[in-house]
């Protein structure tokens, strides 16, 4: 990630059913659109936001706080986009 910057942000899962398969798919798809590497941290566990399986193993239920971290040329855009998705409750509610 040459010339990349690091952007970090904290979000809270607000949709009732948590980060289950469908929202995790949306998140992974979204993260895959950026050049930056996005990781998500929770309780010391760090996963790639591009992997739906890894996202699911976070077992992030309603109210869980996630720490986003992006590194790369479009790090800020990536983090913002993901924050918007999470805050929109993944368009599910």
């Amino acid at each position: 990630m040459s010339g990349g910057t690091v952007v970090e942000k904290t979000v809270t899962i607000q949709n009732r059913h948590g980060l289950h398969v469908r929202p995790a798919t949306q998140l992974a798809d979204l993260a895959g659109k950026f050049k930056s590497a996005v990781t998500i941290l929770k309780d010391g566990q760090e996963v790639s936001a591009r992997s739906i399986i890894e996202l699911l193993t976070l077992a992030a239920s309603h109210g869980t706080v996630l720490h986003l971290r992006a590194e790369g040329p479009d790090a800020a855009e990536a983090v913002d986009a993901i924050e918007r998705l999470v805050n929109s409750k993944f368009g599910l509610e």
Partner: peptide
């Protein structure tokens, strides 16, 4: 339908591993 769509995503992620 979403459940199966989700399974499809899981599988796509699983396959390369």
């Amino acid at each position: 339908a979403d459940i199966f769509a989700g399974h499809l995503s899981i599988m796509k992620d699983l396959a390369p591993q």
